[in-house]
């Protein structure tokens, strides 16, 4: 059989797989369409959409520049504080867990148990933790900090592990030849390798936590989420507009900064 025939024989095979895949996707699409209940559509939806847009264009300026604790600037700072402290606590707690789930450091069974625990932590929605922590601390930003810490741990340790598992250990040999002790090897051989990568991961997570922290207000765990939902429920769209504008600006700025710093950390 020559090459051309071989290729020709291969072709229909792939086409069948492609067709089957597309067919299955279509089936899934039709099946999921049943979730749409159009009778729920309210007739004034259009008016509300228009009102929100108008609110965005004509925000409540007094709220945007208000420096008291109910003003947008303070709420944004509070949200940032929740995300920041949550990231700090989470990034520290994630370090031991990451080492415990790195298969080149601890025995495999321990690594798997810890990994399973981390998957559990990651899957449970932040809002559930938020409500549980409110029972611990009472409503307010403190509950939000604890929630952010816990949800950060899952992803942070997973990303830390990748860094730990491709550590360059050849440096340890040369430090051995210089006459370094084990502690010195960790401080000057391992830590410098981990620090930049870990920092880059933590900054990325801070970016995510900031978005998540805005949501926590919905359950009363502090931040800008609660005023947002109050304003919406009261149909005060200009207030909604100013809160959303503040939020978007903050997230855009933080994202820009975090990208800049992370590129610098990675490329040096």
């Amino acid at each position: 059989m020559n090459v051309i025939e071989k290729q020709y024989k291969l072709e229909p095979n792939r086409r069948v797989t492609q067709l089957v895949t597309i067919f299955i996707l279509c089936l899934l699409f039709v099946w999921s369409l049943s979730a749409i209940e159009l009778e729920q559509l309210t007739t004034n939806g259009f008016t509300i959409a228009k009102n929100i847009l108008v609110g965005m264009v004509q925000p409540d300026l007094s709220l945007l520049v208000n420096v008291t604790t109910s003003g947008v600037p303070y709420l944004l700072i509070e949200t940032m504080a929740i995300a920041f402290l949550g990231t700090v606590v989470g990034s520290i707690l994630a370090i031991p867990l990451a080492f415990l789930s790195a298969s080149n450091i601890v025995p495999k069974p321990i690594a798997y148990v810890v990994r399973f625990l981390l998957i559990l932590i990651r899957t449970i929605p932040a809002i559930v933790y938020g409500l549980m922590f409110i029972r611990v601390t009472g409503p307010g930003p403190f509950a939000g900090v604890l929630t952010m810490s816990l949800v950060s741990i899952g992803m942070l340790s997973k990303l830390y592990v990748d860094v730990i598992e491709d550590l360059d250990i050849s440096i340890l040999e040369s430090m051995e030849s210089i006459g370094c002790t084990t502690l010195e090897k960790i401080r000057f051989g391992i830590l410098p390798q981990l620090l930049a990568s870990f920092l880059s991961i933590v900054i990325y997570r801070f970016d995510m936590n900031l978005r998540d922290a805005t949501v926590l207000g919905l359950v009363g765990a502090g931040g800008i989420g609660a005023p947002l939902i109050f304003a919406m429920n009261a149909y005060r769209w200009s207030e909604v507009g100013s809160i959303l504008i503040g939020l978007i600006l903050l997230i855009l700025i933080v994202e820009y900064m975090s990208n800049k710093i992370r590129t610098k950390l990675v490329r040096g």
Binding site: I171, S174, T181, F188
Partner: peptide, 24 residues
């Protein structure tokens, strides 16, 4: 001792790598 694969901490500056020899 010098190695084939240099064995340096590539993520930090040159001088920091040299300074390691004073650590002990």
């Amino acid at each position: 001792m010098i190695f084939q694969s240099f064995n340096l901490v590539t993520r930090v500056s040159v001088i920091k790598n040299v300074l390691v020899s004073f650590v002990p």
